[in-house]
């Protein structure tokens, strides 16, 4: 019984490591000499990694993982507990329901979907924060989805390389 489980799940630590690296990238401080406004250009690394793993391993990475990662991100960023969790659930749901189509797409077509999904993720966060009265509407926050869409092909290639190299399944 255990041996069967072993052959099926393999190298899931790679998934965990990529999520941790994405979290580090998400909070790494900009150098002192660049203006703080450049922070709006920071892509949503964690969402990109989440989308990739949901497309690649839809039977393993789904709503539950998305929710748990979201809670950790909430603690990491000091946002309301559950805020990123709910946004990540929606992202994972979209990616999981589109995964067969997404796998057929070229990488730039995928970028378009990533743009829309990350944009929705940002909107959910902005909505929750503005309903709670924690921040005001700011169009610049949507820049992150543009940057994420631009970086998607490279993130995709890197994660696909890692998945094949370590035979994650």
């Amino acid at each position: 019984m255990e041996a069967v489980a072993d052959t099926r799940a393999n190298g899931l630590w790679v998934v965990a490591v990529t999520f941790v690296v994405a979290m580090v990238l998400a909070i790494i401080p900009l150098p002192d000499f660049v203006p703080a406004e450049l922070g709006y250009l920071r892509p949503e690394w964690i969402v990109l990694v989440l989308i990739y793993w949901v497309i690649a391993l839809p039977h393993r990475i789904g709503i539950v993982i998305a929710w748990s990662v979201g809670l950790l991100v909430d603690v990491l960023l000091g946002s309301l507990l559950g805020q990123h969790a709910i946004a990540f659930i929606v992202v994972a749901y979209i990616a999981a329901s589109l995964y067969q189509r997404l796998r057929m797409f070229s990488v730039w077509q995928q970028s378009m979907i990533v743009f829309a999904t990350v944009g929705l993720n940002q909107l959910i966060n902005i909505w929750i924060e503005s309903i709670a009265g924690l921040s005001e509407w700011n169009i610049w926050r949507l820049l992150a989805s543009v940057m994420s869409a631009f970086l998607w092909p490279w993130v995709f290639l890197l994660l696909r390389y890692l998945r094949r190299r370590f035979d994650v399944s």
Partner: peptide
């Protein structure tokens, strides 16, 4: 999970019951 997240958000916004959980996860 969506409902659970919403409950968490509301509780976290309006009270400090979740502070210990947040401290632990931190």
């Amino acid at each position: 999970f969506c409902v659970l997240s919403f409950v968490l958000i509301v509780v976290d916004h309006l009270s400090d019951y979740l502070d210990d959980i947040r401290a632990g996860l931190t």
